[in-house]
Design a binder for these strands. Structure first.
Length: 903
RNA sequence: GGGCGAAUAGCUCAGCUGGUCCAGAGCGCCUGCCUUACACGCAGGAUGUCGGGGGUUCGAAUCCCUCUUCGCCCACCA
């Protein structure tokens, strides 16, 4: 199906209606297979893999921005002739999806344990099948040119196979191991988390100074802690070995204040004598540092909390029986804290409290305070994976945009710690390790085993699933068919750029780099583009919970995808955040909507004059047939194409769209089209209509192509109607050659002179309130050769745009307004009786004062020997020329003031 | 505690290796216009001691130091 949305001859409405155009156009692009790389193409590939959104997600503004940026890059490279692949897909999102399901169950009054593992997983699968992937559909309405024939999903059989292969390989290489240590535990999600998933945030807490009585009597020591409830898990109190005042206590014992438990006082370097009280309680099972201390001193590590963050009763595995007194059984940890404190107070053991602001970790999925917890988890050894990444970065093989993000990456690599990859969830890739209880062995398997290969005994699979990110880190090659050596893998790995938010630099980007180097021996991409965050006017990150989000689809419905795309692209400088006002959608997206409409109307005007006409090719037009305005706009176009291309290559997308924006609006519409209207309309005294049409089409065609990556729909719609484009698509039209055409400084200067005349007359007219309909007489003075040539070449335009009845070089006569022009020229607008002498005196006086102030500074500078001797000769020369020009102007102004009889 | 970024017009921000882009853009505001594509427009206009203070330099919004205020990242001081 290749229907044209706007067949030639159809009247274009004066207002651009995005919604009517977008959906059918997108369908047409897909039907034509434009987003699927041509298997026969030999062009160099350009590949981006999408940061896979959560399969259950709905599009928010941040993702809107993220995907628009990728689409701009992909469309740019597609037009440059690369074989582009933008590979889309979704992430099964272990914790997030499981949470959604659990909430659903909760509505039915059930927990996942009520329904059981299998049924729960089936439910998740059904849910994903029914509602998942919505976000991909939403990307289509943004115009994203993903290759939908290659859509992937991290929990699909193919990608699951890659995950399993990787796990087994790491197992074989000894890079994955079972570790018994304190990890971050989310009591609400009921799972362990990696270091990255437990986010720091500052909290106003309290430092409690608590007395632990010496077991043999004779006083107490004071322990400072922020977590009194964990004291039931204390196995020692530690002091710094160099702390002279406390050293003598080492070896003695204290009693836990709320239980009949004796614990020793030990000495350990870990303790900072200057902090708190100098005594630290050691709770190995609920604090990673304390665990290390406990190991050094061979102390036990009793758990005193359950997996859901309640105080354990004696039945809890690992809890030294009877540690938690009965009144605390089952109490939530924060409630337990209150009660412990109350009891301490009652017993007079709470010495003092002081406010203490400190960072505590929260679950990145549900914001629950994370509980450090001793447990058995699977870990990946990261050091061996990080080293090649560091080497590649230092060798300059990886480019970060903005550059400074590279140092974040480097620092993280240097402080890398092993990655906890096991999650106590049900939704995800189950860990492919089987245990044999009979012979006590365990083994990772590529295929599900039937029986223990050693003893033939029954096997039991590990209950845990893998961290979601354990599948994401393989995304750049698992999506291409790895571990098979598929044609896609050969052709499209490695990719080029990864475009994402800085928040997931460590979660995802860094680990993809590790995996790419380790399993594919090549970096997965050469450039990491990290864009800013979408914020509201209070600079808060847009989020569902704050209710300050903007629904991108709402914006698309109101103003069109192109308006959204333009606004976010144009508003986003490298490395900065973008601020949008959720309370003022119109204000936020007006610039995009307005520009789309402007483009539309420029298109209407151009098409009105060129549609259905046979026009000469620009290259065939003799140079001499081109008017000054023609040569000017071609020169401007060439500059614009150069700027836009350079900006895109440097990932300065705001400049990349800013260049054609200003070209189209400020140069093409405001000046060029106005200049050639008489020729377009075939007025008798305006020859060269077809030349003007040819240049106009050429310029418009080029600017449409320059804008296409950002505004795909409107550019396609208009471009298809240009002569000769019948049945073609701008999607694969060649990117304008930045070296084609000529940059002509002389032409630009001459045209600028004509513009200055028009501007000066317009300003004078506005100043004196000359009615728009009335024409005025204007005389010029002090024209040099170039100036005169410029005026001759653009006389018709000047007269038309400034509404001049007569333009000459006659001496000023009668009352009128004076204005200065570039060079030494000036002009005079005859205003007859309309002139207000007082006003004109004031105006010219101000102008003179301004000029003289500048001149004074300039002269001082030129009189300064250190300037003239030290500054580069061309700078000095430029300043001299400027001084002469301004002096002449000042003199002319003074003369005029005198002539007017001003004070 | 360490590291980094930002502070420019009422708002959101450009301003790349210091000099003719020492003040710009969009939105908003004011004035006048429905001028044969566009009132989502045209023309004209106002508004800023470029966060404060020091310094380097012939010359700084642009480099250095310092202070203030925001923001981000990292971090085992309980």
């Amino acid at each position: 199906m290749t229907t044209k949305t706007n067949p030639p001859g159809t009247e274009l409405a004066p207002q651009y209606e995005a919604t009517a155009i977008e959906a059918p156009l997108y369908a047409d692009w897909v039907a034509r297979g434009l987003f699927t790389p041509d298997p026969a193409s030999t062009a160099r590939p350009y590949v981006i893999v999408i940061p896979p959104p959560n399969v259950t997600a709905v599009l928010h503004m941040g993702q809107g921005l993220n995907n628009v940026l990728q689409d701009v890059m992909i469309r740019f490279e597609r037009m440059r002739g690369r074989t582009t692949l933008w590979l889309p897909g979704t992430d099964h999102a272990g914790i997030a999806t499981q949470n959604v399901m659990e909430r659903q169950l909760a509505k039915e009054g059930l927990t996942r344990f009520d329904v059981g593992r299998e049924a729960f997983v089936r439910r998740c699968e059904r849910f994903v099948a029914e509602t998942g992937g919505t976000i991909l559909e939403q990307l289509k309405s943004l115009g994203c040119s993903c290759d939908w024939t290659r859509t992937r999903y991290t929990l699909s059989p193919e990608l699951s196979r890659a995950v399993r292969e990787v796990f087994v390989r790491l197992w074989e290489e000894g890079l994955v191991y079972r570790g018994h240590r304190v990890i971050h535990w989310c009591p609400r999600c009921h799972t362990s988390l990696s270091d990255e998933e437990a986010e720091h945030s500052d909290v106003d807490g309290t430092l409690y100074h608590i007395r632990y009585l010496l077991a043999d009597g004779g006083g107490h020591v004071t322990v400072a802690t922020t977590r009194p409830e964990t004291m039931l898990g204390d196995v020692a109190v530690a002091v710094n070995p160099d702390d002279a005042s406390k050293r003598s206590l080492v070896g003695r014992e204290v009693m836990l204040p709320i239980a009949e438990i004796r614990i020793p006082i030990i000495a350990d370097e870990h303790v900072d004598a200057a902090f708190g009280s100098g005594f630290v309680k050691i709770t190995p099972a609920h604090d990673a540092d304390d665990f290390a201390v406990g190991q050094r001193h061979q102390l036990p590590a009793p758990l005193v909390m359950t997996e859901d963050g309640r105080m354990a009763d004696a039945s809890l595995e690992g809890a030294a029986g009877g540690r938690v007194p009965a009144p605390y059984f089952g109490l939530d940890r924060f409630e337990a804290r209150k009660q412990v404190l109350a009891l301490l107070k009652e017993r007079g053991l709470l010495e003092k409290t002081e406010p203490h602001r400190h960072a505590i970790r929260h679950c990145y999925r549900c914001a629950t305070v994370v509980e450090p917890r001793l447990s058995d988890q699977w870990f990946v050894k990261m050091q061996p994976l990080a080293e090649p990444a560091l080497a590649a970065y230092r060798a300059g093989e990886l480019r970060f945009i903005p550059e400074r993000r590279g140092t974040d990456f480097e620092r993280w690599l240097l402080n890398i710690r092993d990655w906890n990859i096991s999650r106590q969830l049900w939704w995800g890739h189950r860990i492919p390790v089987w245990y044999c209880d009979a012979c006590g062995t365990s083994q990772a398997y590529r295929e599900d085993p039937k029986a223990c290969p050693t003893c033939g005994g029954a096997l039991r699979q590990d209950e845990d699933v893998l961290d979601t990110w354990f599948s994401s880190w393989l995304w750049p090659f698992s999506t291409l068919g790895w571990p098979e050596r598929t044609p896609d893998l050969t052709r499209f790995y490695p990719g080029d750029v990864i475009v994402t938010a800085p928040e997931i630099l460590f979660f995802w980007v860094a680990r993809m780099i590790f995996a790419g180097l380790h399993f594919m021996d090549r970096l997965p991409f050469h450039t990491v583009y990290l864009h800013g965050t979408v914020r509201d006017t209070q600079h808060r990150k847009m989020s569902k919970s704050l209710g300050n989000g903007i629904d991108p689809l709402d914006v698309v419905r109101r103003y069109g995808a192109d308006a959204l795309r333009f606004t976010v692209t144009h508003g986003l400088a490298v490395g900065t955040d973008i601020v949008l006002d959720p309370a003022d959608l119109e204000g936020s997206f007006a610039s995009g909507r307005n520009f789309a409409n402007k483009l539309w109307n420029v298109g209407r005007l151009v098409l009105q004059h060129v549609e259905g006409r046979a026009l000469p090719a620009l290259a065939k037009i003799p140079e001499g047939d081109l008017a000054l305005a023609d040569r000017w706009i071609l020169s401007r176009l060439r500059a614009c194409a150069g700027d836009a291309t350079a900006a895109l290559e440097a990932f300065r997308l705001n400049d990349a769209v800013g260049a054609p924006y200003h070209f189209l609006w400020d140069d093409f519409a405001d000046w060029y089209l106005e200049a050639i209207k008489p020729r377009l309309f075939g007025e008798a005294d305006a020859p060269g209509g077809d030349v003007a049409r040819a240049v106009a089409v050429h310029g418009f065609d080029a600017v449409l192509r320059l804008l296409h990556p950002t505004m795909p729909y409107i550019t396609e719609t208009l471009w298809r109607r240009l002569p000769g484009n019948d049945g073609a698509t701008i999607v694969t039209a060649p990117w304008p050659d930045a070296r084609a055409g000529r940059l002509d400084a002389g032409v630009e200067r001459e045209f600028a002179f004509a513009q200055a005349i028009v501007n000066a007359v317009r300003a004078a007219r506005a100043d004196y309130g000359v009615p728009p309909g009335r024409t005025v007489a204007v005389s010029l003075a002090g024209l040099d050769e170039d100036g005169r040539r410029a005026v001759d070449a653009t006389r018709a335009m000047i007269v038309r745009l400034a509404r001049i009845e007569q333009l000459d070089e006659a001496p000023p006569a009668g009352a009128g307004a004076h204005a200065v022009l570039p060079g030494r020229a000036s002009l005079f607008v005859a205003l007859g009786g309309a002139i207000d002498v007082t006003k004109e005196c004031a105006r010219l006086g101000e102008e003179l004062a301004r000029l003289e102030k500048l001149l004074a500074g300039l002269r001082a500078k030129l009189a300064n020997a250190s300037f003239t001797s030290r500054a580069p000769a061309e700078v000095v020369e430029g300043e001299r020329a400027k001084e002469q020009e301004w002096s002449a102007k000042a003199a002319a102004l003074s003369a005029k003031l005198k002539a007017l009889g001003c004070a």
